[in-house]
Design a protein around this nucleic acid. Structure first.
Lengths: 203, 203
DNA sequence: TCTACTATATACCGCACGGTATGGAAATGA
DNA sequence: TCATTTCCATACCGTGCGGTATATAGTAGA
């Protein structure tokens, strides 16, 4: 990963791994949101100083966007494979369980980075919100298309709108992200997923 | 409403209405969350100066708690009456529609003050989060008790756990709050409510 | 009218914020 | 070895934060 245009053989090589530093930054943004993450907390977690951070990543906003890229690539990759499930209900189950795995698994913070960083916050962070909204819109579109295919394949009951089911599923996932962030135990969230799937419409 | 121990006849009377000022502060907290709301934005919206604010309300955290009280009293009052609906599904419908009315109605900000202020944020705002969690916990308890009564009355199918349904409903509401905050149009959220109610378990 | 008391306005406090200038340390190519 | 290039560490910049000291203005009671 080429973090900057320079760093080309000549001169002193940097002493840290940009990938590791970015992963550490992601943890902080994930816990605090964009506004809540301070440069002091970021640099401490990344193990580098501020000038190193600015030289390598640009500024706070650019760092956040790169962290968002990493988040989508490493954490949200389950969505792409979930859409390949054979049935609409299978898609829903894979997405719900995948989402739960991220939000309560490993040593990562609980909750969803996108939700945390797009809610509330100061006035001068609106470009961040716009960025997140745009990414979420493209993800939503893919889900709607998948459910439209499901209806065409007779996989969704007649009266059920694909767009409505996509919006519903998104809502449950985002609600689950809030619950996870509020330290609702994992078993309860698994119960929530089972409840949701038990009510999923079928013919 | 007695905002302070003083203000007892003697001395110069204040020139603003504490209730109105608090309502204005609530708008700001509702839009920005606790951390995202600055004293400058608060005082400007309230139409008073900082010393007046501190004399009347204490400090930022105390002001927030009073705004939270007002929010519960004026905006979340629908929950209490919703719990009096005759059936579990009726409870769900009243809560969902009441929640939507708050989040997309009038000139109030979209979304839920509790969600916005409990997600993300800096490290020194944890007491705020604890406060919101505690209030949410008591609200959740009431919902669980209502659904336990529903099961006792044969109002919920046999295999359905009251606690699971309470958690599920809370999740949908909080997810809907996120969607409302992301400017999802009202008709879409009404569709979401209809979808949720259509899938509600019945015997 | 005088006194006691309280609200308002202005200016200010220490601090943390995001971001940067500068000087020295380290590694490369010649 | 030496010049060049780049990175790291420290100290600093302007700004806005939450919160306050002080002085003035205004009202009620004696």
């Amino acid at each position: 990963m080429e973090m900057t245009a320079t760093q080309g053989g000549r001169g002193r090589p940097r002493e840290f791994d940009p990938e590791e530093a970015l992963a550490a930054a992601l943890q902080v943004f994930w816990r605090r949101g964009y506004d809540g993450a301070s440069m002091a907390e970021l640099t401490e977690a990344m193990g580098i100083t501020k000038p190193s951070l600015y030289a390598c990543f640009g500024n706070k906003e650019a760092l956040f966007r790169k962290a968002l890229d990493l988040y989508e690539r490493d954490k949200l990759c389950y969505i792409k494979s979930a859409l390949e499930a054979p049935t609409a209900k299978g898609v829903a189950e894979r997405i719900l369980r995948g989402s739960l795995a991220i939000q309560t698994g490993g040593n990562d913070p609980r909750g969803c980075l996108g939700v945390i960083s797009s809610v509330g916050g100061t006035a001068h962070a609106e470009s961040i919100r716009d960025e997140i909204m745009a990414r979420r819109a493209s993800s939503d579109r893919a889900l709607v298309e998948r459910f439209e295919r499901a209806r065409a394949e007779g996989d969704l009951p007649a009266g059920v709108e694909p767009q409505a089911m996509a919006c519903y599923l998104t809502t449950v996932i985002q609600g689950m992200a809030i619950q996870a962030g509020a330290d609702v135990p994992r078993e309860r969230l698994e119960q929530l997923i089972n409840t949701t799937l038990a009510m999923w419409p079928s013919n």
